[in-house]
Simulated scan of single mutants.
Amino acid sequence: MIATATKDRLIKLQPLIALFVMCLAISILSDKFLTVNNGWNILRQISVNICISVGMTLVILTRGIDLSVGSILAFAGAVGAGLLKFGIDVPSENVNIGFTLLGAIIAAIVVGGALGWFNGFAITRFKAPAFVVTLAMLTMARGFTMLYTEGFPINGLGDHFGFIGTGWFLGVPFPVWITAVVVLLAVFLTNKTPLGRYIYAIGGNENAALLSGINTKRVKMIVYTLSGITAAIGGLMVTSRLDSAQPNAGLSYELDAIAAVVIGGTSLSGGKGSIWGTVLGAVIIGVLNNGLVLLNVSPFWQQVVKGAVILLAVIMDKTNKE
């Protein structure tokens, strides 16, 4: 019993141990790592991935997957930027409907939520595999982004919008505050609400959850909608930080999100994991990226290393179950 308890404790501490060892190794190899500026830089960089990963965690907890978050991020960011700068033209009435900063932000979040809702609707209504549905949305949302922007970036969005991604509040980067709110809301949802219990129940055994009276279809639609919303929030932060809505924004972001979720201990089989674990996983990914850059590792090798880390996390997840 004692050995089993110790083993379980070590399994839970694996991500934290990995982060400690990584930080120790990078700090020895680079004197620029353990600096205040670099610490804020890491937190600012991982804010977007944490937001996306929070939504991805909810999806994976229900035994699903969402490959479309990177494309939804790009489209929502482009819509927010486009509405803020150009508004909506109504040629028949010779009218232009302008948008305030708040209006553009809300519109972008609504767009992200709508695309996420469509993912959930297609998955539950037609019983289509989540992998296929979200892969299709990945392509569709990217196409929508290209159509909306006509393949060109939308620049010059103003200082007020730029504050979202580059501003500071009470000595902390504003994106970190946004991410903290998203994380705390997600923690409350998963730990303190019936919806959170339903999410874990569906991931643990969907048939049993259905027989116990849980509306599994509605829960899944909510989860995918939330994933779209968190992707849209990430899109606003990326667009604000660059002061530009790039048509190719968010490429491969879904891979970093999945990596953060898996490294953080959430099981790809569903029903097991936590938001805090995902945050830790995102920090590990961020520290790894930052360390590889500081050590002047080739970008090509960086991809190899990140892929190896993801593979190792999946292998450890499977091994721990046996």
Rank of each mutant, 00 (worst) to 15 (best):
L226M: 14
K12Y: 02
V36A: 11
G204Y: 07
L29Y: 06
D159N: 15
D89L: 13
N320I: 01
S71C: 02
V59H: 03
I46N: 14
G213L: 14
G55W: 00
V54A: 10
I28A: 13
T266P: 02
E322C: 01
D159W: 10
A308F: 11
S269E: 08
S212G: 09
I42A: 13
A114N: 10
T149M: 06
I106T: 05
I315D: 09
L13D: 02
V309M: 08
I164E: 01
L29W: 07
G87R: 03
I229S: 07
Q246C: 01
I26R: 07
K85F: 10
G103T: 07
Y198P: 00
V110T: 04
L61E: 05
L195V: 12
I42G: 13
F152T: 11
V36Q: 11
A74R: 10
V187W: 05
P129L: 11
A18P: 07
D31Q: 07
Q14M: 10
S240A: 09
G250I: 00
Q246N: 12
G307Q: 08
R63Q: 06
P153R: 06
L102W: 09
L185G: 12
I222S: 07
L29H: 03
W117E: 07
T278Y: 02
F152Q: 12
I97T: 05
I97G: 08
L13N: 01
G98T: 09
F188K: 01
Q45N: 15
I229F: 12
F188A: 09
I284W: 11
I60F: 02
I233F: 00
A136C: 15
I2C: 01
F169V: 12
I214Y: 06
R218V: 15
V223K: 01
G82N: 03
M237D: 05
L101F: 08
F118C: 13
F99G: 12
V133S: 12
A201D: 09
M137T: 15
I52M: 05
A3P: 00
N38T: 11
F174A: 11
S47Y: 02
L138Y: 15
S68I: 06
W276S: 11
K32W: 09
K220Q: 12
I315S: 14
M146S: 12
W301K: 05
T266V: 04
T225M: 15
K220E: 05
S240F: 05
K220I: 13
V304R: 09
L236K: 00
I258Y: 07
F20R: 00
V172P: 01
F33P: 10
L67W: 10
S27W: 10
F188Q: 06
T193W: 03
S240G: 02
